[in-house]
Amino acid sequence: MNEITYKVQRFNPDKDSKPYFQTYTFPLKPAMTVLEGLYHILEYIDHTLSFRSSCRMAVCGSCAMHINGKYRLACNTQITSLKSGTVTIRPLLHLPVFKDLVVDHAGFFENLIALKPWLISKEPMPKEEYHQTPQQRKKLDIVADCIMCQACYASCPVAGTDNKYFGPHAFLKALRFVNDSRDAAQLERLAQVAEETGVFRCHTIFNCQEVCPKHLDPSGAIAKLKMSITLNRLKGKLKAKE
């Protein structure tokens, strides 16, 4: 494969009435990633193309996009791994498009912030650092590595029909603090994710689990939150909404 063709969804709200695809063909270099291909287009073919990227190491999550039918990080997706002579790229779904592949993250982060993704300290504050056993710390490992790439949110059908739905990313963070032995607001967090826009809206389709570039399990986190809510309701610690 000496050349590669990119079909990129373009949209400039200042002048376009609807999105359209633009095609670019250029030489394929060994081990070239999808992101490197986009930079080649930007630098040598079309200076108007817009997309996001930062670390190029699959850490920041900013280059997530829809690539050949699946949400992926463009920086760690090699073109040859797609096994196709054409790379079709679309922006993330369920978020307004600023331009081309650049989306507005505001709603995504507003839903996250609503669940207070920070430690709510127990009182009184300890004079030194909080102590955790290795077992207590291990409970955080499976949920603490989320890079907020938004692939799970874009693949979620519920998020696509209700922008008030917190989303898989927010539930993953909620479980991280519910599991944290240092946090003083477990019941408050469970009550919040049990609301109408919470975990019981999940359709358990597992899209979020399939697309996560860090191999996390948002679907499993949602199931654990549901179980914890139910157990606390049975114990009388959490009231069910009438």
Results as ranks from 00 to 15, higher is better:
66 H>L: 13
75 C>M: 00
70 K>C: 06
66 H>Y: 15
78 Q>G: 06
38 L>K: 11
46 D>R: 08
58 A>T: 02
65 M>K: 13
74 A>R: 01
60 C>A: 02
55 C>P: 08
57 M>E: 12
40 H>R: 12
42 L>N: 10
61 G>T: 02
41 I>S: 09
74 A>H: 01
48 T>W: 07
31 A>P: 05
50 S>C: 15
75 C>R: 00
67 I>A: 04
42 L>T: 10
80 T>D: 11
32 M>G: 04
57 M>R: 11
61 G>N: 08
68 N>D: 01
59 V>L: 15
68 N>R: 08
75 C>P: 00
61 G>Y: 01
54 S>I: 03
47 H>I: 09
35 L>D: 03
56 R>G: 04
65 M>S: 13
58 A>Q: 08
68 N>P: 11
49 L>T: 08
59 V>F: 08
53 S>A: 14
51 F>N: 13
33 T>F: 11
33 T>M: 11
30 P>G: 11
67 I>T: 00
41 I>H: 11
38 L>Y: 09
79 I>F: 01
73 L>W: 02
48 T>E: 10
32 M>I: 03
63 C>S: 07
58 A>M: 04
51 F>D: 07
61 G>H: 14
29 K>F: 12
72 R>Y: 05
54 S>T: 05
81 S>P: 07
75 C>H: 01
53 S>H: 15
62 S>K: 03
52 R>Q: 14
36 E>R: 11
37 G>W: 06
50 S>W: 09
78 Q>N: 11
47 H>Y: 07
55 C>R: 10
49 L>P: 11
54 S>N: 15
33 T>L: 11
71 Y>M: 07
53 S>Q: 14
